[in-house]
Nucleic acid binder design. Structure first.
Length: 346
DNA sequence: TTAAATGATTTTCG
DNA sequence: CGAAAATCATTTAA
């Protein structure tokens, strides 16, 4: 047991001054005391240890092999393994449990919803689909923005995927490397498969925490993109003249009950090249604003009433009677269908 | 530059 | 949930 300090010493000596210093050291330390033979032994052993560093890898390998072939090896190794098994079992309890990690799930869900991690291309997010629908007919105006948005999004997606793949690959490489190493070592060192498994899971955890950072920053990027582009919905554009005409026509011709059914909304949306929810918005705004100041809308009401009347006349009589339809607009003295302000809108 | 108009969003209510 | 009401943010007309 008393070799220990000397071993340390010699190691330190080796580290600093190299082999040449060793013999003197030995002699000095083992100077003038009891069993000379024993000291000699120790000296030999140390000598051997020191020379190992000079040996080639082949020699080391051979030595290892020799060790492996030692007749006591299997028995000792089994004992070691047994002991190890017992101690490892006691350690085991603390670890293991793997929480699904709410944060990671949140990030995953968001990436999926944003169409970053989901299936390639296709419709992308629901928002994008809705936007596409909105700009489907006459949407040359905002489709530029959307293509820009989508380009940026796919850029993010591409970066995300390549990075993810890189991580995946690195993780696999590292894992196999470690596993090979452990397997190799398990011949000279008791390593249970469970231990390897644990090591692998540790590695995976590490890598997935790195992946989480990637996901986090991707989410942030998408959020920024959203706030810059999608939130520009708020940067609205007025509906075109034709669309407002159609909407107003419907509104004033159903003034007693200006609540278009779902089907009616869909039809209006199609006619106006806007979405159903935009139709709903429009009617919501119109109803409240009409109710709030009926006087202000009187003229408009008259105008549209006249218009629909004329249209009806046109359709029914097929233009055979009078040629007046060409002047519907001034709307001054047309038989205004006296709007009872408080019909249905409370 | 300002006020009105207007589409969208948020909050409240049945 | 859908509509009313309040509010926001932008566009347009003055």
């Amino acid at each position: 047991m008393d070799e220990q300090p000397r071993l340390m010493h010699s190691h330190a000596g080796v580290g600093m001054t190299g082999h040449p210093g060793l013999p003197q050291h030995m002699q000095e330390g083992a100077g003038g005391a009891d069993g000379d033979g024993r000291k000699q032994d120790i000296g030999d052993i140390l000598q051997q240890i020191m020379t190992i560093t000079d040996q080639s890898l082949d020699e080391a390998q051979a030595r290892k092999h020799a060790l492996n072939c030692h007749r006591m090896k299997p028995a000792l190794f089994n004992v070691l393994c047994e002991i190890k098994e017992k101690t490892v079992l006691s350690i085991r309890g603390a670890q293991e449990e793997e929480p699904p990690d709410a944060q990671l799930m949140r990030l995953d869900n968001m990436l999926l919803a944003e169409g970053v991690s989901g299936p390639e291309k296709g419709g992308g997010s629901a928002a994008a689909a809705a936007a596409a629908a909105a700009s489907g007919g006459a949407g040359a105006d905002n489709s530029a923005e959307h293509s820009d948005y989508r380009a940026k999004l796919s850029q993010i997606r591409q970066i995300y995927h390549t990075e993810l793949e890189k991580y995946e690959q690195a993780c696999n490489e590292f894992t196999t490397h470690v596993m090979n190493l452990l397997r190799e070592q398990s011949r000279t060192r008791p390593i249970s498969p469970k231990e390897i498994e644990r090591m692998v899971s540790i590695i995976h955890r590490k890598f997935s925490s790195i992946q989480m950072q990637l996901k986090q920053s991707t989410c942030e990027a998408v959020m920024i993109l959203r706030s810059r582009f999608l939130d520009a919905r708020r940067k609205r554009r007025n509906f075109n003249k034709q669309a407002t005409e159609i909407l107003n026509e419907y509104f004033y011709s159903h003034l007693s009950n200006p609540y278009p059914s779902e089907e009616a909304k869909e039809e209006l949306a199609k006619k106006c090249s806007i979405t159903v929810s935009q139709v709903s918005n429009w009617f919501g705004n119109k109803r409240i604003r009409y109710k709030k100041n009926i006087g202000k809308f009187q003229e408009e009401a008259n105008m549209y009433a006249a218009k629909t009347a004329v249209n009806a006349a046109n359709v029914s009589s097929h233009g055979s009677q009078a040629n007046s339809p060409s002047t519907p607009n001034s709307a001054g003295g047309y038989p205004s269908p006296c709007y009872q302000p408080d019909r249905r809108i409370q």
